[in-house]
């Protein structure tokens, strides 16, 4: 009997392993292979449609001195940091407001979700029209309110990045809200009651109890949003095209220009590998935080 069980267990295990084969093969072919291919062509001077010439690390040396690319990395970092932290603060505030058993809140929550399903390209086109420096509704009414937006939100160098950050915040704060709201709802009630008996105020409650308890959720939300914000392309491509000057040229956009406009695929591959390293570092930092707190 024992032997039989063992055998059937092995058989079951083998069948289950077969279940894993398709996705593993798929990921090897369509995910790992392109990534490795990218690593490979990063060592070549290759123009699309032309012949490849092995150049070793030349592309990476060129990258280290490529001011436009390094600047685009900085722009990316600024974009990710500002967008995600604003989304976190707003997300937490709105989640706090929504955290109630009231039926009305549920309805409100439903509608708050809309931007997250909004096709990003459409969002970009809509905001571009709203931001139009002379005829856009946002520009017009901001000016009417006496706010100095210079020649226009998306054409002034110091305002353009802010303008696209606002679009990202509009689109993705709701995601933060939903994740954090779920986190808030799962918090235990006891610590609050105890602290209230001790006479703690709302602010103290928030920082002493809510934040520490919510920390795992906060970190995961930050991780998801940071990695997604690192991928930003559609909205910037549509709204500013990277301008004015290079003020909104994020790394994705620069790499796209090099690879798809100038067709320098070898160098573009090297640049995207540089970006990938940045992405992995960001991911690892968060993962380390998440595990160190849990473990």
């Amino acid at each position: 009997m024992y032997l039989f069980q063992q055998k059937s267990f092995d058989k079951k295990k083998r069948t289950l392993i077969y279940f894993l084969v398709p996705i593993t093969v798929y990921m090897l072919v369509f995910f790992l292979y392109p990534v490795l291919y990218n690593l490979f062509i990063g060592f070549f001077d290759l123009k699309l449609g032309g012949t490849a010439e092995f150049v070793g690390l030349d592309n990476y040396r060129k990258m280290a001195g490529d001011e436009q690319f390094l600047n685009s990395l900085i722009t990316t970092m600024v974009f990710v940091f500002c967008a995600v932290s604003v989304e976190l603060i707003f997300g937490l505030a709105i989640a706090g407001l929504l955290n109630s058993e009231n039926k009305k809140m549920e309805i409100l929550r439903t509608f708050i979700l809309i931007p997250t399903v909004f096709t990003p390209l459409v969002a970009g086109l809509v905001w571009k029209s709203l931001y139009h420096p002379d005829m856009g509704m946002v520009s017009y009414y901001l000016r009417a309110l006496g706010i100095n937006i210079g020649r226009g939100l998306i054409v002034e160098r110091h305002l353009a990045l802010l303008s696209v950050i606002i679009v990202d915040v509009w689109e993705w704060t709701p995601l933060m809200v939903i994740i954090l709201l779920a986190g808030l709802k799962s918090l235990p009630k006891n610590p609050y009651e105890a602290a209230m008996i001790d006479g703690a105020g709302a602010v103290q409650l928030f920082f002493r109890i809510t934040v520490p308890l919510l920390k795992p959720t906060l970190l995961v939300a930050l991780l998801i949003r940071s990695l997604d914000a690192l991928k930003v392309f559609d909205i910037i491509w549509v709204i500013t095209g990277g301008g004015p000057g290079t003020s909104t040229t994020v790394a994705n956009l620069r790499i796209y220009e090099v690879g798809m406009n100038q067709l320098q695929v070898g160098y573009a591959a090297a640049l995207s590998n540089g970006l990938l390293v940045v992405g992995i570092i960001v991911g690892l930092i968060f993962v380390k935080f998440i595990y160190s707190k849990e473990g």
């Binding site: 420096p133 002379d134 005829m135 020649r151 226009g152 054409v155």
Partner: peptide
Amino acid sequence: APSGAIGYWWDDRETAYRT
């Protein structure tokens, strides 16, 4: 030029004239 012209593409410029 209209203040936003530093961000104009062809369609914006034509619109500024046509309007």
